[in-house]
Amino acid sequence: MKVLITAGASGIGRAMAEAFDAEGADVWVTDVDKKALANLPAHWGAADVDASNEAAMADFFAELEARWGRLDVLCANAGIAGPTAPVEEIALADWQRCVSVNLEGAFLAARYATPIMKTALSGSIVLTSSTAGQYGYPFRAPYAAAKWAVIGLMKTLAMELGPYGIRANAICPGAVEGERMEGVLAREALAKGMTRDAVYQGYASGTSMRSFVTAEDVANMAVFLGSDKARLVSGQVIAVDGHTENPDPKV
């Protein structure tokens, strides 16, 4: 199995790469974090590619096709948190950058992976959305808008590519333990005049399981969606979030 993970050098993407590797897959990751790329296992493929840069993505996929000849699983995982602020304080440039990475990065990955998968009449595309793609999130307008759009993209891919044996699904992580979420907590605490711990508890108490999730929890779902065990699972929005009940964290 040949698997590509965008933004795969750290966080959820790294966990996905490790999980597929453990299943015996050949793994290639792209990222813009050169330091993280340098610390990947030697037997993984690694490339410094901005997922929102069309020329860079086109060149990378040409290399991938020349080297591998096929692609079984695409995990379009690239994303950034974007600004945390009231909508009237969000600069258009910050909005555009957030949407570019989260939405256009997913589109470009799917756009260049699709011809390779069509040749084989098989493949699985897994897009990383978010519970922000299922609910409105105060102070996170660009991120929520982009993640909702990712789900619309996935639904369209599933319908369009199903006749070629290609499946498409979206994973919606909830609050994921780790460095990125810590940054979100800090910014949201500042925007709402709350403490970091109060925001953390608000997220956790907003789930029926009263818990954050781990990157490994998300990765396990990606492996399932990429496997033959999910051969008829397509067009689905699957939350890995401990069941979010209240998407607006409060004290």
Rank of each mutant, 00 (worst) to 15 (best):
R70E: 15
V199L: 12
I151A: 06
V27Q: 09
E65W: 00
G24M: 05
D72C: 04
I116Q: 06
S52K: 03
P163Q: 10
V29G: 06
R14T: 04
I166R: 07
F212V: 09
A230G: 08
A91G: 08
A66Q: 15
K250R: 15
A9D: 10
V184G: 08
C172Y: 03
L161G: 05
Y143L: 12
G24I: 04
D50Q: 12
P173N: 04
W44N: 11
G24F: 02
T84C: 15
P83V: 11
V73L: 05
A198I: 09
Q96D: 15
G11H: 01
T128C: 05
V99Q: 00
N220V: 06
D228M: 12
V73K: 04
D50W: 02
G226H: 01
A17D: 11
A113R: 01
K34M: 10
A58F: 01
W44M: 11
V150E: 02
M57D: 11
A215G: 12
E54A: 15
V32L: 14
L37K: 02
L153K: 03
K34I: 11
A81G: 15
P163N: 08
L185M: 13
G174Y: 00
W44R: 11
L71D: 10
A15R: 04
F107V: 01
A22C: 07
T131N: 13
S234K: 09
A158T: 03
D31P: 11
A56R: 11
I90C: 05
